[in-house]
């Protein structure tokens, strides 16, 4: 089974295509990076999860001494579900607004502590205040994968039946609350 690296001359055209492959592949990569870079609008509504039930989960409650929570615990009232972590600077940036929402609007907020260290997370909440009704510990990010989490923070508005009604990728600030989440929440109240 003698092998020769040199191809016969009539295969030259094939080889040319082979040689052009890297260039074509790279052009596609640049196009992808450019698209990813310019068209990426973090406020865009991702369609797949909207109007879908919140994914099933069964995770320990942060600082809950072994108690666990499931998707059923989200039901009964509209909730804001916030994916956060101590390693995420933007989570700290939006923390004051979440605290305000929790205190002033009466919308209850559930936290998903995402790919984090539980001890650090508890310390973080002690230090910066705790607007969450409870937090579930998603240490391995499994629930994050189900939710299509791309990076913390992400915030979901879930209705009383446990259906996702709105998704926000990135910081929740006053403007986002006023213009996106609050109207979506009022909509829920209007259409039970």
């Amino acid at each position: 089974m003698a092998q020769t690296a040199a191809a016969p001359a009539h295969a030259a055209a094939h080889r040319m295509i082979g040689r052009l492959l890297p260039l074509a592949g790279f052009a596609a990569l640049v196009a992808l990076l450019y698209l990813g870079f310019t068209l990426r609008d973090p406020t865009l509504l991702p369609s797949a999860l909207i109007a879908q039930p919140f994914p099933r989960f069964d995770l320990p409650i942060l600082g809950g001494g072994g108690r666990r929570a499931t998707e059923a615990d989200l039901q009964g009232a509209p909730r804001l579900v916030n994916v956060w972590a101590t390693w995420c600077p933007t989570c700290l940036a939006e923390h004051a607004e979440l605290t305000r929402i929790g205190a002033e609007t009466g919308l209850s907020i559930i936290g998903i502590n995402y790919k984090d260290d539980a001890a650090k997370a508890i310390a973080w909440l002690v230090r910066h205040g705790d607007p969450y009704q409870f937090n579930v510990v998603d240490a391995d990010g499994d629930l994050g994968v189900e939710l299509g989490v791309y990076g913390a923070p992400e915030t979901f508005l879930v209705d009383a039946a446990g259906i996702i009604r709105h998704k926000r990728v990135g910081e929740v600030n006053r403007a986002v609350w006023e213009n996106e989440i609050a109207p979506a929440w009022r909509n829920l109240a209007a259409t039970p």
């Binding site: 609008d41 865009l44 509504l45 991702p46 369609s47 990010g141 299509g148 791309y150």
Partner: peptide, 8 residues
Amino acid sequence: GGDKISVG
């Protein structure tokens, strides 16, 4: 067009 996933 905007759906996000993560590969773990």
